[in-house]
Computed example of a mutant assay.
Amino acid sequence: MKKIKIISAFVFLLLLSVVSSCTDEDDDVVVNASVDPTPVINTVNNGTWRITLFNDSGVNETSNFTGYNFSFGAGSVLSATNGVDTYLGTWSVTSDNSNDDSPSNDLDFNIAFSTPANFAELTEDWNIVSYNSTKIQLIHVSGGGGGTDYVTFEKN
């Protein structure tokens, strides 16, 4: 009888710790197959964002974007400004069920800039690793052994 009480108490404590660890409303959403792009679009449409990580095939190039605020606007207009210079590009979030370099039935976060050169490096069909209301993490694996790039946007 004593063993049953000890086991019951242990199970209760284990369940309590699991439930209490799942209460953060800003938990990252890990994107997988058959995901609707609308929540991601609504998240990035809200406010301005900055790049807190840009890793180009193992080289940290985050400093190329220091001081720039990014706005993911209506009509697929993406703007980046540092108060002096403003660069315009395009963006979209689409279902990835096509024949691209990683056809995995997930979401693509598409970014395109033509200038300047360091912003043009953002031009990719990024896969969404995770996102929440204040952070979105993206990855791009180049075909043909070109490397893996990472970019993280955080809300201002």
Rank of each mutant, 00 (worst) to 15 (best):
D24A: 10
S76C: 01
F54V: 04
F72R: 04
F70K: 13
V129Q: 11
V59G: 03
V40G: 03
A117F: 07
N82S: 06
N64P: 05
T52F: 02
L107D: 05
D28N: 14
L107W: 08
N42A: 11
V44W: 08
T86Q: 07
W49P: 08
G83Y: 07
I111K: 04
W49K: 13
D56S: 15
F113Q: 11
T66N: 11
S142N: 11
G67H: 10
N99P: 00
G143H: 09
W91D: 01
T123Q: 05
V77K: 11
L16Y: 07
D36L: 01
D96A: 15
I41V: 15
N99V: 11
G75I: 06
P39H: 03
N110T: 12
D56R: 14
T152P: 07
N64G: 01
V151S: 00
S133A: 14
F113M: 02
A80D: 05
S114T: 15
A120I: 04
D101W: 09
H140D: 06
S57Y: 09
L13E: 00
D101T: 13
G147L: 12
F113D: 02
N42K: 15
A33C: 08
D149A: 13
V84A: 06
F72Y: 01
K3T: 10
L16D: 02
T43W: 10
E61K: 15
I7D: 00
V19D: 00
A117Y: 10
M1W: 01
L107E: 05
L16M: 11
P39N: 01
A117V: 14
G67T: 13
D28P: 08
F70Y: 15
N156H: 03
S98N: 12
N99W: 04
N64I: 09
N156Y: 05
N105Q: 07
V11N: 08
N42E: 06
S79F: 03
D28A: 14
P39K: 12
D100R: 05
G83L: 05
N46M: 03
D36G: 08
S95I: 13
N82T: 07
S71A: 13
Y87F: 15
L138R: 12
I111C: 01
V151T: 14
S95C: 01
M1K: 08
T52Q: 08
D24L: 12
Y87K: 12
G83R: 13
N69K: 13
E154T: 15
L14E: 02
V151N: 05
F109G: 06
G47V: 07
M1N: 10
V19H: 03
D36M: 09
L15E: 01
D101C: 05
F54L: 05
L15H: 00
N42R: 12
K2L: 12
V93Y: 06
F119P: 11
D101F: 03
F113I: 12
F153I: 09
H140C: 14
S142T: 13
D28I: 12
S104A: 09
L15G: 12
S95F: 05
L122K: 10
D100G: 09
T48V: 14
L14D: 00
S95T: 13
F72Q: 01
K135P: 06
D125C: 10
G75E: 04
V29D: 02
G83F: 02
F54P: 06
V77H: 02
D56N: 14
N69H: 10
